[in-house]
Amino acid sequence: MTRRLILSACALALAGAASVQPALAQMGPPPMGPLAAERRAQVARDMHILLRLRPDQEAAWQAFEAAMVPPEPPPADGAAPKALTTPQRLEEMAERRAEMDARQAKWEAATRSFYAALSPDQQQAFDALARLRGPMAPPHGPGGPRGPIGGPEGAPPPGV
């Protein structure tokens, strides 16, 4: 009797897990909602104010801000996950890594260019803001979970 009960419970658990699996695979990362966009915009306005940017620095700021916008998530097509071979999965992973590397390079170039356009006092303020915001987080940009820039050479601040 108990053996039959245990087997039934196991069968139910496996059936439940199997029915949930496709739904979990389709979920993906949560969408970036209007609150995240509002937060990014507010952080950008705050940085603009705190750095006291001059009119001649506005073009560098605009380029920096544009590079910080996170990429749009791919649309959820609702289809079942693709049945790929291991080499095909590895190729997809390599493509995603190359895209992330390209975004990282774009982010770094925009940050260096903007930083070079700042006065020494503004650079000092920018560095202080970076230390307050935490480690580098280029995919998220201004207002992202960890902010636009990190400590020296991308090192996390002390105590992290």
Rank of each mutant, 00 (worst) to 15 (best):
L118T: 07
Q122E: 12
E99G: 13
C10E: 03
A83I: 12
M1Y: 05
A59V: 06
G33I: 08
R52A: 10
R97K: 15
P75Y: 05
A137R: 05
A155Q: 15
M100E: 12
G147T: 02
P139C: 09
A11P: 00
Q21G: 12
I49P: 00
A83Y: 04
M1H: 14
A130M: 03
F114P: 01
E99W: 03
L14D: 05
A155H: 09
R133M: 11
K82L: 14
M1W: 07
P142W: 01
R54E: 13
I149K: 02
V160F: 13
R103A: 10
M100K: 12
A94I: 02
E58C: 05
S113D: 13
A83K: 11
L129F: 03
E95C: 01
A79L: 13
A37Y: 04
S119N: 06
I6G: 04
A109H: 13
F114H: 01
V43E: 07
P70T: 08
M136T: 03
P73L: 13
E72M: 10
Q42R: 14
G28I: 10
G151C: 06
A76D: 10
A60L: 04
P148Y: 03
Q21T: 12
Q42H: 11
Q42G: 02
L90Y: 05
S113G: 08
L129S: 02
A66K: 14
P73Q: 05
G134V: 00
P71F: 02
A76W: 03
P34Q: 14
S8K: 12
R96W: 03
R97C: 02
V20I: 14
A44F: 03
Q42S: 07
